[in-house]
Design a protein around this nucleic acid. Sequence first.
DNA 1: ATATTTTTTTAGACCCGTCTAAACTTTTAT
DNA 2: ATAAAAGTTTAGACGGGTCTAAAAAAATAT
Lengths: 217, 217
Amino acid sequence: MLSFTEENYLKCIYHLAEGGAKAVLTNEIADSMNTKAASVTDMIKKLSGKSYIAYEKYYGVKMTKLGKAKALSIIRKHRLWETFLVQKLKFSWDEVHEIAEQLEHIQSPLLIEKLDEFLNYPKADPHGEPIPDRHGKVELPAQGCLLEQPLGYVGNVVAVKDSDSNLLKYLNKIGTIPGKKVELIGKEQYDESLEIIVDKKKLTISKSVAQNILVAV
Amino acid sequence: MLSFTEENYLKCIYHLAEGGAKAVLTNEIADSMNTKAASVTDMIKKLSGKSYIAYEKYYGVKMTKLGKAKALSIIRKHRLWETFLVQKLKFSWDEVHEIAEQLEHIQSPLLIEKLDEFLNYPKADPHGEPIPDRHGKVELPAQGCLLEQPLGYVGNVVAVKDSDSNLLKYLNKIGTIPGKKVELIGKEQYDESLEIIVDKKKLTISKSVAQNILVAV
DNA sequence: ATATTTTTTTAGACCCGTCTAAACTTTTAT
DNA sequence: ATAAAAGTTTAGACGGGTCTAAAAAAATAT
Ligand SMILES: [Mn+2]
Ligand SMILES: [Mn+2]
Ligand SMILES: [Mn+2]
Ligand SMILES: [Mn+2]
């Protein structure tokens, strides 16, 4: 059985590898986990010893089939718990990520199946991220970062990055939440800020905000 | 913030001290935690260093006010989660203890308040054990172990010990669950087994079962 | 009162996850 | 092609929690 720490590394690597496909470098992991490269190297050895990742010295790691499955099961738990917290316990969407970071490590397959049933098999979490099914299958809709869309783009918000509570509060305030239609009417090249229309209101958002909004393409 | 291990020790000591009152010896803790006396001594030093217990070398430990409050908050979480699992997720009462052992360590005061509200402020968990309120206040009804009741005793089951899943399955089968009336009609002195009436049916239960049934007195 | 048994504590070791500092490899710049 | 810079790994240390074996204290028996 994996420790909390091992599970967190695995999830982190999965995300950095964008679904477990591409290789991930030591320093990327270190940055993302707020730790030091030396610690990452140690953990990498452990996880590759357990066959969750394939490790090539100096060239980073790739996830194995086993590693991807494990990461997806943790992500499934995380997103189901977030959904529970918002739908059943009436948390707001900016309060749930930290709690789900803890709950995702609870070990009980039956618990997750029952929770899934209780929530009526939701397809996405409160931030629009897809919830993998019990077999680890996850269908991600054709989506792209709002920042990278061309001038004139019109489409719906699919999901938002959920790890920054203040960002979520802000997105809620300006109305760019999953399901909402956005229109991209201006791109300022100087600071990469965007001018958009949401709810028939024109507003400007900074690059760092636009990076965290995923839209249908 | 306490580690899982520290929290588990604290809860264990609280239970052994029967509500934090009496002193608890090193070996009692070691037995109860399935660990060695030497490990217990180490942990005792740590917890007393943090003022959760008062430690007198060779004479055991007593809980401080702080320690009792902390233990009660963990017990509150444990019992609320058990209630959630049975009432909302439809677990049977013999499946929830192990999962609650994990969930009790989740850190989020708001989560527990919202869970409490969601469950409509339950007074007791699925095994009949009282749930401390948010201030750590717990009203334990006048109760005693069925084994120690006199011949002819008649009264209701208040609670049962929940840590053995097989015991719970058995108690469920014979019908001695919280709320049920039991009548004590025979005490066999040889093996301390009891003859009781439940649901108008006469049956014999062993000492080890009778020890785990708490009745109103 | 002394010896024996039981309980508790200490000493020293191990694994986990982390860190800093130093060594090493790869990449980039000249 | 060589030097400098950047990235990665290794070496050694530390705190947390556990263990075994040995020492010390308390309880019990004679
Ligand atoms: Mn999240
Ligand atoms: Mn986590
Ligand atoms: Mn329990
Ligand atoms: Mn526990």
